[in-house]
Design a protein around this nucleic acid. Structure first.
Lengths: 219, 219
DNA sequence: AATTAGGTGTCATTTAGTGACAGCGGCGCG
DNA sequence: CGCGCCGCTGTCACTAAATGACACCTAATT
């Protein structure tokens, strides 16, 4: 495309790398949505981004994983939110505050990426390759949730009870996430989902037998 | 290999097809375990089974899905067990009875396949391709569990609460399944896991807030 | 015997994905 | 400034994954 123009230099380093990965993922998801996964070649993705095909395969081990950075967005946000969960707040309070915060802080690009991510969740129902990326992302979220719960309940991260809580809770959150996303994509009124933080919190409480959700005493 | 010897005919039909799929899956999993996924080519799998490479790709859409039939075994068994769950029994009772039944009825080939499946669960930790197959299998199990729960609780299969129960329960079962499998593979005493049915039942009760596990009144 | 219906093998071809090598740009160094 | 170092990229060659097209074989049907 442009005869070997080289990198941008280590000034940006990891940030630049992540940005390129996101760009590739964006174009890949857009093409997957517009013309299907099978009809989208690695060549086509590379051309859309403006890099060589080789560079695409350097950043992603295969075609389906091109969707991961976009697909992971939702799960990554949930994980980041849980990491910030202060001990003295209930889950409802914390989620509501974070949702409000995100609604104010999100850029236009963020919202577009969210839209793409939701579309991928829909596409996952019919495209095995996308479902794979989606499942990998949720599995990653489950592991990180286990760490967060272990930290909050002051247990080791490989404790069986912690793993059970994390699995049940993250699976529940996933169901709500998919349900809400699908509804929004088919034109539902966002106002109808204003109570989503409460629904999520309730689902997590239920799935963990009430063990996760309440404030914990101060250190 | 053997110049076009043709099929066996429609006498067996679907059963024959399934048997061939299982044979391919067995050899694929064995090779994945013995020499790794990357080092195992589709050509090699075909040769091990005694069919042409083309036939392998006719029965599986890609290499990683060759593992699915074996990997799915555990999840498929759980699903079949839940389908047989009579309304008047508690989950503990039913699981214990089924576990006992399986222990008596399983053939040597069944046990070998179970061993392979457990190995795949271990391999999934390091091989993304196998993890993909594993996650796909669990996702399938989750959907079938949702149907079973919907039937038992007499609700529609797309009811949100049913989906939440199924997701939380199947995720919990998965954690126990993996934990027990990993322990057995590293030489733990099977006697230590005699109470697994009770543990599973307890986990399901906990994950569903007690909504799934008790006997239901007779129709 | 001719026909139909699956399923298979062989061959050709496209796409996915890797290895090897050279060029480029910024950076620290003398 | 001139130098080499480092990380990233593109190009080319190549292996492996996966699909399409076609002929053929077998068993069941008529």
């Amino acid at each position: 495309m442009n005869g070997g123009r080289g990198a941008g230099g280590p000034g940006a380093d990891a940030a630049r790398r992540d940005r390129l990965r996101m760009n590739i993922s964006r174009e890949a998801c857009r093409l997957f949505w517009e013309r299907g996964v099978d009809a989208t070649t690695g060549d086509r993705i590379a051309r859309a981004v403006g890099v060589s095909t080789r560079t695409v395969w350097r950043h992603f081990r295969n075609k389906e994983s091109c969707a991961e950075p976009i697909v992971t967005r939702g799960a990554a946000w949930e994980t980041a939110v849980l990491r910030r969960w202060p001990p003295h707040l209930s889950l409802e309070e914390h989620l509501a505050a974070e949702a409000h915060r995100y609604a104010r802080a999100a850029t236009d690009l963020d919202r577009l990426d969210d839209l793409l991510a939701t579309r991928m969740a829909v596409l996952a129902a019919t495209e095995p390759a996308v479902r794979t990326a989606w499942l990998m992302a949720r599995d990653q979220a489950r592991r990180e949730l286990a760490e967060a719960i272990a930290h909050r309940t002051r247990r080791p991260p490989d404790d069986l009870q912690v793993l059970l809580y994390a699995a049940a809770a993250s699976a529940s959150v996933r169901v709500l996430h998919e349900t809400v996303g699908a509804a929004l994509l088919t034109g539902a009124d966002p106002e109808d989902f204003a109570d989503t933080p409460h629904r999520v919190a309730r689902a997590v409480r239920s799935a963990t037998g009430g063990a996760v959700g309440d404030p914990t005493e101060a250190v």
